[in-house]
Each structure stands twice: as structure tokens, then as C-alpha cells.
Design a protein around this nucleic acid. Structure first.
Lengths: 150, 150
DNA sequence: AGAGTATTGTGTATTATTCTCAATAAGTGA
DNA sequence: TCACTTATTGAGAATAATACACAATACTCT
């Protein structure tokens, strides 16, 4: 279920919220993002600047948070100290992350059994599922060899 | 494999690091923590103050990060904007989290198939596994009913 | 078209976490 | 056991991500 301006509007209005040009443009950026890419708030800010749609940082923070809570975006927390966002795609595109805690190298992988487990678990507790992600913290081959602390 | 002062020391020294009273005390706090509990840096700071082992916040931040990278602690990122830590326990205690993104209510659940998938995946890529956690973002029954924004 | 109110942008505030650096102390080898 | 090297600590300042306040704007509904 890819979002269009109209379906986004419908879903916002249903909750008493509004479709604004800013929200539409931000959604578009994520929809045009190559698979496996994700943006921080800062990245998104810069991207919008350079494509000629300047949007304030406040609005960006508010919008990605809103969209994450609507289930449109996924909030990814790697080890760099800030969040990243990407479209929350269903089954064939849904993926997970293996992350090196030293150098932040990230490898994506897929698993539909996790998706099933996620929906089964939230359903059992009466929760409305937004996103489920398996987060693997590990040390990559290169960083295993280096003995640097930290 | 529960840590003792000695095994912690051995593991630290192996990498050229040192066992300090602070590190020992911090590990103890986590080992005495009831199952299902986890501490923020601030929590840990207060706990240490009140048990008569004051340790500076700097040291606390450094130590939990170190221990997470050693695989001794798990770093949990819920939605409150700060990290929580707990002992990284093996199989029968290892668990995952279902989190309400609105009120932060957290439910723990177990799954050994995830643990297997985590180690299989990191092994395949040559990574040294530290921790794997399935993170389910969802909205709890109470918050589904409330129509409050945010 | 107009009323009502959600949303935006600007600037400021907050908060978690990291950094700096001098003082201390753990590990090591004689 | 003692001295040496250097990792670690504590205090405070610095940083960086994110939230907030509020006046101005602009959706949505009638």
C-alpha cells in the first residue's frame, strides 16, 4: 500500500489532522529514496534544501515523528546518537539491520518469520502494530582485528 | 556465564584494560537487578548514590558503553530519548520488547528462534555477535482509544 | 467565502551524552 | 615490594539532537 497524496490526506483527516505541502513533500522524499537508504532529520533537511523545498528543522522533526506514529515511517536507531527514518514497507521489502557498534557499518537482511512473530505478539497483547525490527549489535570483521579501545 | 570480579578482570586485562572498583560496583548493580528491570545512566547514578557508592556520571556513561561493547550489557533504546541498560543474559532469560510509542508501556517476551536467527545472521557475515533484540513498536490498547495527537 | 484550529517557522530551551585535563591508581616487571 | 607506565576517574565545560513557545499562516468544513 504505497501512499499517494490522497490516501495520506484521508488518513490524516480521519484523525483531525491536515495535509500540508510540507508533509506531502517529505513523504515524497522517502518514496523516492533508493532501497536500503535512510535519512536523519539533518539529512532530510539538507535534501529538501537542495531540491528547492526548504522546510524548517522543527517541522521535519515533528513530521517524521508523526509519520512514525502513523506507521508510515520506521524509526531506526543505530549507534550514532541520532535517529534515521525510512519508509515502512510491507513484506517483500521489509528488512532488518546488523550493525557494527564500533564503526556503524550496517548490513540489511530479510526475514518473514520475524514479521509474523511481530504481528502475532502485538496482536496477542492487543497492541496495534507499527513496526517490528530485529536489531543485531555486533562487531564487524575489520573492527575485530583492530584492538583500539572504544 | 555470570560474571565474577575475577572473570571481569580477566576479560578486561586481556584487552589491556583495567578492573576498577567502579566497574565492579556497576556490574554488581546490574547483577542484583530484578528480572525485567533496566536502568538509564541517571537511574544508575542515583542508585549508586543511595547505596553509598557514589560514581561520577562521566564514569557511568563510559562504563555502560564499554560493557555494552564487551557484550556484558544490552543497550535498549525505547522511545523516551535516552538509553537503558540491563545484563545481557543468555538463552532462558534473553527477551525482547513490545513498546507503546505513545505512553512507553513495555512488555517483555521471549523467543529462542530470534536468538538463533541473530547468531546465524551475524556468523554468516563474519560479525562477532553482541546482542540481538526484536523491537516492536506499537500502540497499546489504552492509547488506541485516546485520540490525543502525538 | 468565513470560522475555527492545526500547522509552520524562528528562535530559544532542554537534555542526554561526550570531551578535556589534571590527579589518581591498576597492572607489570624488576 | 617498589617504581613505572598508562588507563581511568571526577569535575566541569562543550556538543548535539531534539523539543518547546508563540505569533503568523493556511487547511478543512460548513
Amino acid at each position: 500500500m504505497a501512499y499517494t497524496a490522497n490516501s495520506l490526506k484521508a488518513e490524516l483527516n480521519e484523525r483531525g489532522w491536515r495535509l500540508t505541502p510540507q508533509r506531502e513533500v517529505i513523504l515524497n522524499v522517502f518514496q523516492n529514496l533508493a532501497e536500503g537508504h535512510h535519512l536523519s532529520a539533518e539529512d532530510l533537511y539538507n535534501e529538501l534544501q537542495s531540491q528547492g523545498d526548504p522546510i524548517s528543522l522543527s517541522t521535519i522533526y515533528r513530521t517524521v515523528k508523526l509519520m512514525a506514529r502513523m506507521g508510515i515511517l520506521r524509526e531506526l536507531e543505530f549507534a550514532e546518537g541520532h535517529k534515521h527514518y525510512e519508509l515502512n514497507q510491507p513484506y517483500p521489502h521489509h528488512h532488518h539491520h546488523l550493525i557494527c557498534v564500533k564503526c556503524n557499518k550496517t548490513i540489511e537482511f530479510k526475514s518473514d518469520s520475524i514479521l509474523k512473530l511481530g504481528s502475532k505478539t502485538s496482536e496477542k497483547e492487543g497492541f496495534h502494530l507499527l513496526d517490528c525490527q530485529l536489531l543485531i549489535h555486533a562487531i564487524c570483521p575489520q573492527c575485530q582485528r583492530s584492538l583500539l579501545p572504544g
